[in-house]
Design a protein around this nucleic acid. Structure first.
Lengths: 199, 199, 199, 199
DNA sequence: TCGTAAGCGAGACGGTACGTCGAGTCTTGCT
DNA sequence: AGCAAGACTCGACGTACCGTCTCGCTTACGA
């Protein structure tokens, strides 16, 4: 008889199936959104039995979260200049919106997380982590003296990505890369006309 | 013969049922979110038959949109000073978040609209209309010379509400009213430290 | 508002669906047997949703029992002569085997009842009832003096239908009507050669 | 090196596993019946992998049949007197019902065989073989002149075991050994009151 | 004043997806 | 090559809602 102990008895889980499931999930998330995503649809598109999905993820939530986690993130850029850092980071981020289902997945998950504590618990750390490069750039700038020492960096970060979020959630149109320059300009300098130019 | 338009034979629709349905919809939207909202749940909570709902709204989408439309909006404030306008408007808006299901309904609908063209078509005008007071305040400020004549007001509006949206969608915590002052300050003046204070 | 009490609120259950379900059940029972009968198969063959089946029968057991109950029974025959009664009854019973799924359903249920107390509870009274005409004929014969007063009628009944049961359960072949005459002869007179004919 | 034929390269099949599987199958068959028998259950109870079962039997049917085949059979008894032969044979057969899962397995298989040609093919020879001692006893009696020369021995055999089959399939109660004497008496002499005793 | 047409709550209808379980197959590392 | 373990695809389970459809009632209008 074979050994009965050991940590890895039996057939190991198929890495291929794992990847196929995550890929199918992302494709379907992008196509139909979180609330119209069916596990049966994922299974069928991945060429996989439903049990294989439920063996790995207890429900469709953690599955979706893991799939989301696979999507590329904000790339940190350090040029020594805050404006340049932000412009490059946001530009490449907007590019992700066009190349991945990110723009479709993000609102779906965000809209669900409030009503789903489990989802919230899983996804909040990921969302925080995705902000990191932005906050890091601000921290560096603060150290360099580009930003006031007492500036609330969290709020500053929200100000910078805010317009992108607003358009992502409330608008159907693609977000144009040419938005980036005025956006960064406005966030850095404010909307108010400089004092000296006023009549 | 029918009197006017042929629309008024038989028992008239119950206004009471109508109101009960919308109220139940808002309550459930706030409680479980759009994707977990069931028409059966609405019917049962409103003490109404499902047919009574489907007689008025072709699907749960327009129902939800109409219910959302009932929620109070951003109140326009005109003090003659942009900062003051914004502070008062945002403060009262945040108050709505605590008094109505708005904070729960908004992300749900926003998360769904991308995957649901019907919903998008219905809700986009409402979303635009809700921004109106904010844009109006900016227009007034622009006329007064507080803002540059070539300022993109849409982008400016997004910058102002952006942080609220970001926290609404990505955060579980209530959004504190004390956030408003630094937010408006930052949006008006920018995050960058004024030139003259740099070492 | 409409009345909220009353015993029959809502749409009444469809008699047509009911009949279609029972018909489909019998057909499938005959075709694939009890253990291969699927509720999904019944629903699909009856053109009915699964919920419509589960609304009426809590599981496939009572469904099958009710379907079985619909099958025609042993017809009582009273000619004043036991042999003639038995011959006519058995002949018409064998005919049912060829005209209905009875011959297929009976072994399936009998094979299951031992392992399924619920099924047993439901089907045993029906099985007993189906024996009644046979026992009645024996009782009449006993009263007439054709049978000994102390004869165990239950055992006698088992002796008469025994060979049919044996062939039904253990044999694939159809049971020939021409079996009836020798069967009744043997049951009435016994297998032993009469004393006086022995060498 | 392989010893005798080309069939014995590698590790030989474990006789122990084989026996454990058959034993577990019989136990489970008796406990839950054929249709509730799961191969997984057998494997787990036998402490064996499913593959080890499927390596020996192509499906659960032949497995069950072979397990059934292991059960003890009707013992042939030859006392020179038919009545005595039958009484002893049936009595010891009934004893098997109480000592083995036979009484539970038999109806299950019989109920299934009609819908399962594979099962039927496998089990019919076994069922025929199990009747052999009974038919042999009748043949001997026929040779001795106890039975008419033209008696249909198959039918006679069915008459004798018929009541047992009927009670086995349609009744939950144990079949009492004290049933044997009246049963044999009735089968030999018939149910009809002898002519000379009639009024 | 009364008929009638539409609305009402209730709930059954045919469907679809849920998350679970077992079938029979396949793939590990070990013997 | 067999072994125990356990993952694989597939398909049925019984449940929950979907959006539609009767039911037997109100209810208000217009003849």
């Amino acid at each position: 008889m074979a050994s009965t102990s050991g940590s890895s008895a039996g057939r190991p889980r198929s890495e291929e199936a794992h990847r196929a499931i995550l890929r199918a999930t992302l494709e379907l998330l992008g196509a139909v959104g979180f609330s119209n995503l069916t596990v049966e649809g994922v299974a069928s598109r991945a060429g996989v039995g439903k049990a294989t999905i439920y063996r790995r993820w207890p429900s469709k939530l953690p599955l979706v979260v893991e799939a989301f986690h696979e999507l590329p993130q904000l790339m940190d850029v350090d040029t020594g200049n805050l404006g340049e850092d932000l412009r490059q980071m946001l530009r490449s981020y907007l590019q992700l919106f066009n190349e991945t289902p990110l723009a479709a997945v993000l609102p779906s998950l965000a809209g669900e997380r409030r009503h789903n504590p489990q989802l919230s618990e899983l996804i909040d750390p990921i969302l925080r982590q995705r902000r990191r490069p932005l906050v890091s750039a601000l921290e560096r700038a603060q150290k360099r003296g580009e930003l006031a020492a007492d500036l609330d960096l969290d709020l500053a970060a929200d100000l910078i990505v805010g317009p992108i979020a607003v358009r992502l959630f409330f608008t159907g149109r693609r977000i144009q890369p040419k938005l980036v320059d005025p956006l960064v300009e406005l966030a850095l300098e404010g909307v108010r006309r400089p004092e000296q130019s006023r009549g």
